[in-house]
Structure formats: C-alpha cells, structure tokens
C-alpha cells in the first residue's frame, strides 16, 4: 500500500481549498487591470483562465496566491487572506519557466519548496522521489537541470509544486514554452496527477483545447480592464482519455470558449 495515497485520502477535506473573490479590482497606477471581479471556486475543482494577452490573468492569480495586494475587494482562500495561505505554504506555484536551480540535482530541485520555510511544511508533505518516479523521472534523480529536456524540466517543476501537498495549485501558462507533442503529454500527465489528490487548480492558458481537456470550469475574460465574460462548466467525464479531442462534446465546448473569447475581443 502506498503510504502517500493513504495520507491523501484521510485528509482530503482538510487539504482542499475554496476560493472566494468579491469585487476584486487591481490597478497599477492609472492602469486598471482587474475590474470588480467576483468569483467562487469550489474546493478540488480545476479552473482554467483564458483571455487576451495582457488582460491580467497573471495579475489575478498572483493576487490569489498572495504575491500581490489587491487595490480593492476581497479574496479568501479557505476563509483566510491569500497572504496567510501563502505563509502557511498552502499555495503551490508552477511558473511558466521551470526555473530549476542549476546547482541542484533533479531530486534536490524537487525538494526545493520543502527546504524553504520548513516550519510551515505540512505534516503530510508528499515524498518528492515517489512523485518523480510517478512522472517518469525515476532514472534522472541525480541528473542536473542542464541534462534534461524542456518537458522533463517542466515535470520537475510540477513535482516541486505537488510535493508541498498544498491544497491550492496555481499554474501560470506552465506549458507555453513546450512543443505540441510534449504539451499533449504534459496535459495527460497533469490530468492523472491531480486526479484523486483533491487539489484546487487555477490554470492560466492561451490554449482552448488545453483548457477544455483539463478543466471542470473555464473562465473567459475580456481585455483590460478585465471582467469575466463567460464561465463555462466542462461536463466531460473523468478520467479523461488522451484522445478526448475527437469527441463531439469536446469540440462543442471548445467552440463555446472560442466564441466567448472572440465576443469579448470584438465588443
């Protein structure tokens, strides 16, 4: 019996994250980026954000992750402020660039977030090595980042975040720099990894199929100042097959997202 599985099951309810956003606005000086956004995100759901470039998706997830203060409005992560959630390591980030430290091995890089601010580590932190094996990097534990491909680097970055066993996972275009084939692979891998872990995932992307294939919900935003123009439920069953792209419902949902996106861009 895999001990990490057991731990994950027994604490599910405790390690899930509900997000409430009320009238959130954010400006940089005179530049209004987010405008009175209100949103509720269920624990354990996978939510994608899609919108025109520069509309403020990164800003939104950075505010939710407690990395940037809001100008007005309120954000609650499990009832706490984002700063509080961050201080307790309840938010795990997967940035666009994997940003592994070149002097650390794959194993040590996967441990990085556990090595920092140790006092806030959860008692049930996952075992990075087991996760590395799970993503197929079992033979590369002692390799250095320069010896890895882009997809492999991003898998380490994913493990680094998952190892925290944080209830909220924030991913800002994590696969944007990867080629099409690797992207499809990462998509399947991510679907498998978050299934059964009960984490809430906020996923920023520019790819409509990626958003639909991964999410329970796709949120489409307008150009700056950002408001939410569509909030679509993805009712595709899970677990999702690799060839889900061919299904009629998938194609239909993608079309809906595309129309919402185009509608938002040509008011």
């Amino acid at each position: 019996m895999d001990p990490t599985m057991l731990a994950a099951d027994s604490v599910h309810s405790a390690r899930m994250s509900r997000i409430e956003i009320r009238d959130l606005s954010k400006s940089f000086g005179d530049l209004a980026v987010l405008h009175q956004i209100s949103l509720e995100i269920e624990s354990g759901s996978f939510v994608s954000f899609i919108g025109p470039s520069g509309c403020g998706k990164t800003t939104l997830v950075r505010v939710i992750a407690g990395l940037q203060a809001a100008t007005a409005g309120e954000v609650r992560v499990d009832g706490d402020s984002p700063e509080e959630a961050r201080a307790h390591k309840r938010v795990a980030m997967v940035p666009q660039q994997p940003g592994l430290l070149p002097w650390r091995t794959v194993r040590a890089n996967a441990r990085l977030l556990l090595d920092i601010n140790r006092a806030a580590n959860p008692p049930d932190a996952a075992e990075p090595e087991a996760l590395l094996r799970e993503v197929g990097l079992g033979d590369f534990m002692d390799a250095y980042p320069h010896e890895l491909s882009g997809g492999m680097l991003q898998r380490v970055s994913l493990v680094r975040a998952l190892a925290l066993n944080a209830p909220l996972l924030v991913m800002d275009e994590p696969f944007a720099a990867l080629d099409e084939i690797t992207r499809a692979e990462m998509r399947a891998l991510l679907n498998g990894l978050v299934a059964g872990r009960g984490v809430t995932v906020l996923f920023v992307t520019h790819s409509i199929p990626e958003a639909v294939a991964l999410s329970d919900r796709v949120i489409v935003s307008s150009p700056r100042p950002t408001t939410i123009v569509a909030d679509l439920i993805v009712d595709l069953p899970r677990p999702r097959a690799r060839d889900i792209d061919d299904e009629a419902r998938f194609v239909d949902l993608c079309a809906q997202v595309r129309h919402a996106l185009h509608g938002a861009m040509r008011p």
Binding site: A65, L67, A87, V91, Q96, G99, L113, N117, A120
Partner: peptide, 17 residues
C-alpha cells in the same frame, strides 16, 4: 531570475533563505 524569486516568495521564504 525574477521568476525564481517569485517562486521563493510563494512559500514565504525569508530574506536570509
């Protein structure tokens, strides 16, 4: 890299860390 610093900030790393 700024993104590395942001990653450190996301787990509330102290300045000395």
């Amino acid at each position: 890299e700024p993104s590395t610093l942001e990653l450190m900030a996301s787990v509330n790393a102290s300045r000395s860390e």
